[in-house]
Design a protein around this nucleic acid. Structure first.
Lengths: 216, 216
DNA sequence: AGCCGTGAGTTAGAACTTCTAACGAACACG
DNA sequence: CGTGTTCGTTAGAAGTTCTAACTCACGGCT
């Protein structure tokens, strides 16, 4: 007994078509990138003519925003699942890489080049907070703070609005940021193809950066 | 006396118009991103009608490729200049950040989301080799290799096609990669606005990452 | 059971885009 | 002073997003 897919028949049909639209949208994005996404092409694939899609999404941007939200959501879910399964910082890091490699364009939808005017909706900022909380948990669990905080760590401790009540010590704040920025650095360059033809194995560089963050 | 702008009058005029096209193209990219670049709009700004631009660029992609090449070139020039002026690894890092902040969309043109099909022309890979050489120089000059190489460092030493005859020791190879990936990690997240509303100062995080790479 | 309003899908069309084709005119060169 | 290359033009094809107006069928209510 799956979830009863609550709602009126109309609502259920509507949700179903929305999902089908998004399915073809993902296919297009995976093969040609988000900028090449064409509503007309999607409509043709589904079998209805052009403007019909505007019953389901106000415009192209709203569809893309929805896809970005779904991408964020799937990343947050995976990280939360792994964390609940007892994964440490390195487990989360590997989960992140698997998620990214599974669909590079999905990664770029979240962490890639932003459109200058675009402002993320409130939902996504809430999801990033969820992700940050998982990382902060893992960073706090890592090791007790022993050394006196560095200047940057005290700065982070002074401006911890982004940690949202999380009781992580200054060193954990720093490590969470390192986790995010360093892994993103390796990952985004790899996915963008900047390591192509360089000879070395990106996975080993990634693993080494993980060690650097977790403290060997 | 500046360079005489060699060539026939036709060639000089042609080069001049090409530059004007690129100028307006950069303006559009800076304000709306590369995906919003419109050849028609550029033509209108210059004062000629649409298809005239196709005398100067075969198509939209060729114009963008040209802009990417210019962006790469300007970054390489800046880093080489700073290196010749005696800048160390930290000097190069700050130059990189200044270059990125001066025009975020230019940075994304080089290091941002790639179009799945796109393959960089041979020119740009030569320019990346130039950039890598400058960084490797600075990494080698840093400090003598004392400790035995880590597993990753020996791996990099075994696959040093990307270093192109550069006599950098394994530790310098590792540091060059850290320079690239870690600084790109912080920088790209900052430019993409992912730090917005988080409270802390990205410049301090960047400076701290520099210290991590240079070895305090 | 039957009405009937809401919402889905249609076509037409406006305003864009890139890019090709054919034409005229201006310019540099022999 | 011709002459040919090249530049810029207009026309138009094929694509895009998105609006407007119309039909029609489905689902809820009496």
């Amino acid at each position: 007994m799956g979830k009863p897919d609550a709602g009126t028949p109309r609502e259920r049909y509507r949700a179903q078509v929305r999902e089908e639209i998004k399915k073809y949208a993902w296919e297009q994005i995976a093969t040609a990138g988000a900028s090449a996404l064409s509503l007309n092409a999607i409509a043709k694939q589904i079998g209805m003519s052009g403007p019909a899609l505007y019953r389901y999404f106000a415009n192209r941007d709203e569809l893309i925003t929805e896809l970005i939200k779904d991408a964020y959501r799937s990343l947050a879910d995976i990280l939360q699942d792994r964390a609940e399964a007892g994964a440490g910082l390195d487990g989360l890091a590997h989960a992140l890489r698997e998620w990214a490699l599974a669909d590079p364009q999905r990664y770029f939808l979240v962490y890639g080049t932003p459109v200058p005017g675009y402002h993320a909706p409130a939902d996504t900022t809430r999801i990033t907070a969820e992700i940050m909380a998982v990382i902060l948990d893992a960073c706090t669990a890592g090791q007790p703070p022993v050394a006196p905080p560095s200047p940057l760590e005290t700065h982070l401790d002074d401006h911890r609005v982004w940690a949202r009540q999380h009781p992580a010590p200054p060193s954990a704040l720093r490590r969470a940021l390192a986790f995010w920025t360093r892994l993103h650095g390796v990952l985004s360059l790899e996915l963008a193809g900047h390591f192509d033809g360089m000879g070395f194995d990106p996975a080993r560089l990634y693993a080494d950066e993980i060690e650097g963050v977790t403290g060997h």
